[in-house]
Design a protein around this nucleic acid. Structure first.
Lengths: 198, 198
DNA sequence: GTTTTTTCTATCCCCACGGATAGATACATA
DNA sequence: TATGTATCTATCCGTGGGGATAGAAAAAAC
């Protein structure tokens, strides 16, 4: 019925995430996107609705994947695993592509005005997802007695959100791969110290 | 000898910080800068060396001021004051201009490539300053016995750096002024829990 | 009051950007 | 194999960007 595209959707989105991550939203030109993703500007326009719509789709794909694959599992993660998860964020061994594909929300937060538009919806959603996920894990840690009974899972979930954002920023800021590791390690140590000593 | 400028340097830099903060580096046009700062594009060019050089100068002024006025004092800040300092980061009462003038380093980190250039130098410096400042304060807290003897000031200073970065990002991301407060409160609570119970 | 130096005003220039268009080209259905 | 649909190629367009320039204007020095 119709001609096939040169690049399949998934590959395109993956490459797009990398481009936006490296250069930011405004810094990534449609010509660059064309080159790196295999997409043509024509298709970018007709089939994705232009640069901003395309970025939003890239953002959505990124967040879906983060939720499904990269966040610690809500049901089965204990406190030590949570700590290790944070430690791994900046580990080049555990994450070979560290920095090659970071948190796109960072670009969105700093480059777009807070005007209640599409980007703001994504940002709000991301904050909610993170909080919910961390709160679930910590709630379970209370049940299993890993942490003290007076532990506030809500407050600590907020703290973890904040820690993860800071870590993402540090990873983006890193002059070399080793740079972010102490930050991840400090976060992990913080979590381990929540354990009740017994 | 020469004609006087319409806007004095300090006013210009202050306004520039606001513009860059609101719209990011790339998002702030030289025409906007002209309007908001009172500077002419001519002077921006001849006397500041263009947009990027001007941004660097704005960044330097911002950092000097942060170091001198807005970071907790290295010699006289105890643990509770440090906690309160973090709590105040997101308090509209304590910081009426919250968000009107946030951390310019955020823009710099996300919008500029890591290429070893001028911006990278500033970023590295900022990280060093923060770490040093926090480590000093925590070192003193050990001396005074506010925290346990096995407390690692270096690791915790790193954690505080990360926390502050996350907080700055949350403030930038906030849909309303109340949004960031739980994050600041969680950070403050974390610090207060470092206190030795006695 | 004249001179000198710097800023201001008002253009101008060139380029990169996102987007639009039109003819050529695959691909799958009929 | 003919047809139709969506993509590709190549080019074009309008806009806004940072920067450059030349004459007017102001302020200090003499």
């Amino acid at each position: 019925m119709s001609r096939a595209r040169k690049a399949d959707h998934k590959t395109v989105i993956d490459a797009a995430q990398a481009v936006f991550w490296e250069h930011g939203y405004q810094g990534a030109s449609t010509r660059q996107i064309e080159e790196r993703t295999g997409l043509t500007r024509f298709t970018l326009q007709t089939s994705y609705g232009g640069k901003e719509a395309f970025f939003l789709e890239t953002l959505d794909a990124y967040m879906s994947r983060v939720e499904a694959e990269h966040l610690p599992d809500a049901g089965s993660t204990n406190l030590e695993e949570l700590a290790q998860w944070f430690a791994d964020r900046a580990d080049p061994a555990a994450m070979p592509q560290i920095g090659a594909q970071g948190c796109l929300l960072l670009n969105a937060i700093t480059e777009f005005d807070r005007n209640g538009g599409e980007v703001d919806v994504r940002i709000a959603h991301y904050f909610e997802v993170l909080h919910h996920r961390f709160a679930q894990i910590l709630g379970k840690a209370i049940e299993t007695g890993e942490v003290a009974a007076d532990f506030d899972p809500d407050e600590k979930a907020t703290l973890l959100q904040n820690t993860l954002l800071g870590l993402s920023l540090t990873i983006k800021a890193r002059p070399n791969d080793a740079f972010a590791q102490p930050f991840a390690a400090a976060a992990a140590a913080m979590i381990r110290q929540w354990r009740v000593v017994g």
